[in-house]
């Protein structure tokens, strides 16, 4: 199997013209053979490794590449 990190990065880059943040389900769908809770471990590991970062609406959490997206500027947290 290809490096999960590469799979996630490739997917995010392919969508980067439209949006910078993704739901867990969007990323988990990249690993159809995995159980959801395995995918959870993998994707959260990417957060711990600094590959991804969380963005929370308060009620929902999304994932994106650190520092990307227009909110980053709007929130003044560069």
């Amino acid at each position: 199997m290809a490096d999960p990190k590469e799979i996630v990065l490739e997917f995010i880059h392919s969508k980067s013209k439209q949006k910078s943040k993704f739901y867990f389900n969007d990323l988990a769908a990249l690993f159809p053979e995995m159980k959801m809770r395995e995918a959870k471990k993998l994707i959260n590991q990417l957060v711990s490794d600094g590959v991804l970062e969380y963005w929370s609406s308060g009620s929902t959490t999304m994932y994106g590449l650190p520092g990307t997206g227009k909110q980053a500027g709007a929130e003044g947290e560069e």
């Binding site: 957060v47 711990s48 929370s56 609406s57 308060g58 959490t61 909110q71 980053a72 929130e75 947290e77």
Partner: peptide, 20 residues
């Protein structure tokens, strides 16, 4: 108030709500 979604502590996806 405005909402902020990025802030938090390292490795946790919850527990902090950004406000400006």
């Amino acid at each position: 108030w405005k909402h902020g979604g990025i802030v938090g502590v390292f490795g946790y996806g919850g527990g902090v709500i950004g406000r400006y």
